[in-house]
Design a protein around this nucleic acid. Structure first.
Lengths: 229, 229
DNA sequence: CAGGCGCTTGACGGTTTCTTTATGTTTTTC
DNA sequence: GAAAAACATAAAGAAACCGTCAAGCGCCTG
């Protein structure tokens, strides 16, 4: 990145949340641009060219999805969505509309910061080289099409590998059920979530991962899966 | 590279995209050669000998694949394809025709640059494609065009040798059925996986290799073959 | 021109992978 | 706290894929 300070666009109508987030973000060295409505947000995104947008889904003037879609018409900047608890539907639709990740609102600021870092990093090193995932004993090497667990190659099937590939390419971020199903089985299968469950189960077994205490693949209930970063 | 400036051929019909890309590329220190049509592009590729080509798939005068194929008849320069979103089919066919990478069009310029760097680097550092393979008792010497098993010459047919050559040059990585079929039999045969099975079977017999417990050639089910590294 | 060689093609059995069903568990919702 | 929804896993059946053998055909060579 050219300057040391990444600019973050914050689209949030409630004043106290806005100021809380601004302070937190600035404390972490980001420059913050504030918007109080969807329209404002879209305008500022064009003017200021921020590196990331944080968007509250519950805006008064516009539907969150609509903001995402309009932003996505001309921009690829990462969008982090804030949703209220129990709004599974909203999250999923936001992600499908083109958001990159979400945080459930009454949430720790540290989680939010972690997500911000992941999104900024992913953008920055857009290099198709960061396609080697490594964590704990697991190594997934996309160029070589190879999966190693503690040095041993793990035999994975085609579909298992395809899933891993998707997970690695968005490591740290959520993959919705829909998007995975669409990629692996085609657009007609986006509601056959049980295919996915069986696939993930098999994969976890091969990787020695436990869904209740995951080292690699985390279940995001009602939304999808995430590969730990 | 001989001079510091790599020359990039940009084949793009839409004027505003073209100038945007030219500016971005030049800002990163590349020399840009512009072409507005497929025919132009092919001609300039021959005249100017660029180090890389960026090709928009949606040209008015010629099918993108056709451009790639005609370029590939005599040139090995890396081709980066620009495709519109959701044109999976186009991407795949472009890659099969011989493109090296693709970027989905409304995409960040930083991602494009990253891919450009990767393609140029791979070319430049000659990607030390091995030419002599040695493992267990097997020695495959491409410059000498020789296959030895425990010191004994193994008589291999032309097609068998061609396959070995491909395997050696990407030892450790997977060769897809498609790519092998395209290289050995031509683009029209990319679905005749049966040819390959027979060929590999014969080769394994000559090398004393067992598909169930392979010392050299590993089957990647549904994908292709891999020469152990 | 006969024989050998290499390639193509078809057949078949065995294996792997994928789908589907069933059952129990965890998490969310009311 | 109970019902409902979502998830995990095992296992069986179906489909896809793979390896091998062998016959047929054309081409080259001796």
């Amino acid at each position: 990145m050219s300057d040391g300070k990444a600019a973050i666009l914050l689209i949030e109508d409630e004043a106290h949340i806005r100021s809380f987030l601004r302070i937190s973000l600035e404390a972490h060295g980001y420059a913050v641009i504030e918007a109080r409505s969807g329209e404002d947000g879209l305008a500022l995104a064009g003017e200021k060219q921020p590196q990331l947008a944080i968007l509250d889904l519950g805006l008064p003037d516009m539907d969150g999805q609509q903001v995402i879609r309009r932003l996505r018409e001309w921009s690829e900047i990462p969008i982090l969505v804030l949703s209220v608890r129990n709004d599974e539907n909203g999250k999923v639709r936001a992600l499908d509309a083109g958001a990159n990740d979400y945080v459930t609102k009454p949430a720790g600021i540290s989680e939010l910061m972690a997500r911000v870092r992941v999104l900024l990093r992913a953008r920055e090193s857009g290099d198709p080289e960061s396609v080697v995932y490594q964590r704990n004993g697991l190594r997934i090497d996309l160029p070589r099409r190879e999966v190693l667990l503690n040095g041993e190659t793990v035999r994975v099937t085609r579909k298992e590998y395809e899933l891993l590939r998707l997970l690695v390419r968005s490591a740290g971020r959520v993959l919705t059920h829909q998007s995975v199903l669409r990629e692996l089985w085609g657009p007609a299968f986006t509601s056959e979530t049980h295919y996915l469950r069986v696939l993930v189960s098999g994969l976890r077994q091969k990787l020695g991962d436990d869904p209740a205490d995951p080292h690699y693949i985390v279940t995001e209930q009602g939304v999808g899966y995430r590969l730990l970063d």
